[in-house]
Amino acid sequence: MNKLPLIFVGIFLTFTSAWIGLVAYPTLNLGEMQPLPDEETGGVLPPTTSGLAVAGQKVYASSGCVYCHSQQVRWSPLSTDIAKGLGPRQTVARDYLREKVAFLGTMRTGPDLSNIGARQPDTNWHHQHLFEPRTVTDWSIMPSYRYLYKTQKIEGQPSSDAVQGLRGPHAPKLGYEVVPSEEAKALVAYLLSLKKNYKLPESPEPSEP
């Protein structure tokens, strides 16, 4: 065993290499990543998000959306994510600079949400969908988030933020309306902010989808 010192060094490097590669490197490198200046608008990339959207991220976390919805577009051609319309390009590390928690997700029990704000820009649609998913998509298996909404009697003028066009067993009766809580409003603001349709130099859009 006269090569013992050599074996030691080899094992030393392998044993700790994973920690360097998967913990230290991302912490020091990806953790210090900065937004890029956006030459077209004078802003930054990825664009800054509103305070309400940041609050909405907390609702996203506490409701556990991540267990069914991913937020990542994988590379082409190995995956068909781009061809299936999840986004115009692969998502890269810089896309997640605005996120306190990067909800990359590991399941697509529901559709990917990387670009849901671009696919469904309508606030009322999101409220309808969260209140009772099967009224907008009858085959959906998403749970209802009715507990984020309040059904109340209309007194005088209807509330300006009342959800429009609700159907189904939980729809408000005549003279009643459904209004979103602050949490529901924040969650929808967060969903609408999910748009990765800006251009980043490190992730060019593929020429053929």
């Binding site: 990806l30 590390a93 896309d95 928690v101």
Partner: peptide, 8 residues
């Protein structure tokens, strides 16, 4: 740490 590093 910042979002991008968290997944790893």
């Amino acid at each position: 740490v910042q979002g991008p590093a968290q997944g790893a």
